[in-house]
């Protein structure tokens, strides 16, 4: 398992992307993606800012960079103490210097007053358990629309059944943020495959390593870390290798690792031709499309048919 184009089917052209060595943290496995970089896009943390929450469910983001298009990461959300936290249902393209208002944002903290302001904020990506529902609700103006799904998620994790995502993201932050260290961002990495247990969970691709590095924490800690945290396995006793010397031990470790890498490859969903792309918006040569079918859903940004951003996941 070294090439991405053999895994994700057409019409996405993923030739040139390579897969690295899998890393694991509990039940979460991450396979780094390296490949063609497309610099020039505004990174989400240092360039894209939450300007204000106009009213519940209506959020303004601002691309403050002097040049470069900002690709709003799919399902980005903002947390701020004492304010109503919001997440977006879809990705978007914002030109340099522009402010964009999203009227279909969802509140992720029922009953909490106050509006987010552009200060003391940190962003997350919705947990993968909520992403299919959030994508399905894009375009619908109702700030409370994600509360039932959040309530179900909390109930499933043994937390009070409320529409408070903060119960997980903030109160479990200390353990969730450890995923940022339990999995290591690799030099030059601009994407990743994620698996929960032996099940493919998502594919994340960024235009360049700088953009992906700024997404790293939000993805590993919140988008995929929440499900992994909930399924954290109890480590068993260490089983020794049957080696009678150091050289033999080294060889056994190497072959064992190779076998485990192959095992990860076997977890990939089988390629299918049923994937459909529906264009949502465009900016110059950039196309933002929603992907459905083939056991995948999510959004991609393409340029001349080549993806520069992708966030695809398995509906859960």
């Amino acid at each position: 398992m070294t090439r991405l184009d053999t895994i994700v089917p057409a019409p996405l052209d993923l030739t040139g992307y390579r897969l690295g060595t899998p890393q694991r943290a509990g039940t979460l496995t991450m396979v780094p993606i390296h490949g063609p970089s497309r610099p020039g896009f505004v990174p989400p943390r240092s360039g894209l800012k939450l300007k204000q929450v106009v009213t519940y469910g209506k959020v303004e983001l601002h691309n403050g960079a002097p040049e470069g298009v900002a690709i709003v990461p799919l399902h980005i959300g903002y947390i701020q103490d004492g304010a109503q936290n919001h997440a977006l249902c879809s990705s978007a393209l914002i030109a340099a210097g522009q402010t964009r208002r999203f009227d279909d944002a969802c509140c992720v903290q029922s009953g909490q007053g106050g509006y987010l302001e552009g200060r003391d904020q940190w962003f997350f990506v919705l947990p993968v358990e909520l992403r299919a529902k959030a994508l399905e609700l894009r375009g619908r103006e109702n700030y409370a629309k994600l509360w039932p799904a959040i309530t179900d998620l909390n109930r499933g994790y043994g937390l009070p059944p409320r529409g408070h995502l903060e119960q997980i993201l903030s109160r479990k932050r200390a353990v969730l943020t450890q995923f940022q260290s339990r999995l290591e961002l690799m030099p030059g990495q601009l994407g990743a495959l994620f698996f929960l247990g032996e099940t493919f969970a998502g594919l994340e691709l960024a235009p360049d390593p700088v953009y992906f590095a700024e997404m790293w924490m939000a993805l590993v800690c919140f988008a995929y870390g929440v499900a992994a945290w909930h399924a954290e396995p109890v480590p068993g006793p260490a089983e020794p290798y049957d080696a009678s010397g150091l050289a033999e031990l080294r060889e056994l470790l190497r072959s064992d690792r190779a076998a485990r890498t192959e095992e990860v490859a076997s977890w990939m969903p089988k390629p299918t031709r049923k994937v459909e792309l529906v264009e949502q918006e465009r900016y110059l040569d950039l196309r933002l499309s929603t992907v459905t079918g083939g056991g995948l859903t999510g959004q991609v940004v393409t340029e001349h048919g080549r993806p520069v951003y992708a966030s695809l996941f398995t509906p859960r």
Partner: peptide, 18 residues
């Protein structure tokens, strides 16, 4: 993370590897 548990297994093997 590459891969978790490997250090424990290698350490546990050392006595039998002499």
């Amino acid at each position: 993370n590459l891969l978790p548990g490997d250090l424990a297994r290698v350490a546990a093997t050392l006595p039998r590897a002499g």
